[in-house]
Write a protein that binds this DNA or RNA. Structure first.
Lengths: 244, 244
DNA sequence: CGGCCAATTGACGGCTCTCAAATTCCGTGG
DNA sequence: CCACGGAATTTGAGAGCCGTCAATTGGCCG
């Protein structure tokens, strides 16, 4: 517990913590971050896996075997309805825990597709559940991670239900910007890994509308955008728009 | 385990199972349904609570103390963004587990408001987590219940992101109808407990649009609707619309 | 009986989608 | 290294749907 709180204060400073583990959602529970003592969850991490751009880690209909922690790279999570409707529900970055969508029935209901070549840590699910039986902290962290998924989904719901397209796009850009900041990159300038199509699907709009809104925001000097490259020019104005 | 599967086959037939517990999401884990042997989760249920129409069980900002199982009645779950946007994310019926929104941070992020006088079972959260430490089945069931919330949220997301207003309303009505059926009521005829405003908020539209869509569906002889009373006249056509 | 709130209906305007075309970028093969 | 083809992105014009504003109706409760 003590070590946990210390870590929260200065995660990037730990000399023995691999750089790629800095933002891991299992921070403090994984062996890679705790070389001094054995940890239950540590034994869950068996191996790593490389997925290339466009490949999927799992697909809707697959049986739940592993959860995954995205170690580097980025992905898109796509949910498909029985009638064939599709939507991107999330764009996870390094540190994110993937695969919780299968927890209800043991069958995945989403596709996880790599936006660029990405590295994953593999956590055999059965083993992980077993470990949580003996480790209260691990179990609670798993709960929190699941709950975070719900709340993030709810935020997106609010976005689709209550916001105009301008507000949604501004909100999306600010969200990426904050993620970049929390990962140690510049919040002012970054490269999007997803297509306009992906963004449109995520925000419940059409590609052309996404383009037009971005053009409008650029016209108003709030940001510069050229293809995948984004430069934010007026954070306050963007934040104001994204707040409704 | 054996008793569990028996129960699934014929839950309403158990003579010792109170009628209001028939659709409980804790079915098989709660003492009320298992008088023969002690069960870990059973000890979590301490007391019951009555909330009147319009009153809230918990509100955004409240500290997580209990989870609740809705024993009878119905509620609406409302999420509020920092900037004041509001949306109804769910209309739980009897048997639903409430309060999981607080799992991420220990603070509720939703309001749970009674649509009619309702009875709740109270589950002290700390005790429940402790019990899950010693009961693998209980822990997994809790996982499933949380995961169900995520997937339901995702379904609504698909609805808001990909469907027209007609499709969303048809989908909503069919969803209510199926819930009614699974609770032993007629799927063809039922009374809505929520206002048009609530429905509109849930589906990401305006009150007037909800009214107009319902009028359109009635015009097409798919259903009759008068105030809160709904009678479905063409299930197949409605299902077809709700599937896109 | 009166007042208030929920629900409904109509007219109108704006925003977003649809359809279409042009442009740019990227990877591949020559 | 250059040319080429396909995909992603951008921009334009027009139509349709949904939101806004306003007025009316209908129920419920005091």
């Amino acid at each position: 517990m003590d070590i946990l709180s210390t870590r929260v204060d200065s995660p990037p400073m730990q000399p023995h913590l691999p750089r790629e583990c800095e933002h891991c959602s299992l921070s403090g529970l994984c062996r890679a971050s705790r070389q001094d003592e054995p940890l239950p969850l540590a034994t869950s991490i068996r191996s790593r896996k490389l997925v290339h751009r466009g490949e999927s880690v799992y697909r809707a209909g697959d049986r739940l075997q592993n959860l995954y922690v995205l170690r580097s790279g980025s992905m898109k999570i796509r949910v498909t309805s029985p009638s064939g409707l599709e939507q991107i529900t999330d764009f996870p970055l390094a540190g994110a825990l993937l695969g919780l969508d299968a927890l209800e029935s043991g069958i995945h209901v989403c596709d996880a597709i790599a936006l660029e070549d990405s590295m994953l840590c593999i956590l055999p699910f059965a083993e992980l559940v077993g470990n949580c039986q003996h480790d209260l902290v691990a179990a609670q962290q798993l709960h929190r991670l699941i709950a975070r998924d719900i709340n993030q989904c709810r935020r997106l719901l609010l976005s689709l239900g209550c916001m105009t397209t301008d507000e949604r796009v501004a909100d999306f850009v600010m969200g990426i910007s904050e993620q970049m900041a929390s990962h140690g990159y510049s919040p002012r300038e970054f490269t999007l890994k997803m297509t306009r199509e992906d963004i449109a699907s995520h925000l419940g709009m059409k590609v052309e509308t996404v383009c037009r809104v971005l053009a409008r925001l650029q016209e108003a000097s709030l940001l510069n955008v050229s293809r995948r490259h984004v430069e934010i020019r007026n954070v306050d104005a963007l934040r104001k728009i994204s707040s409704g």
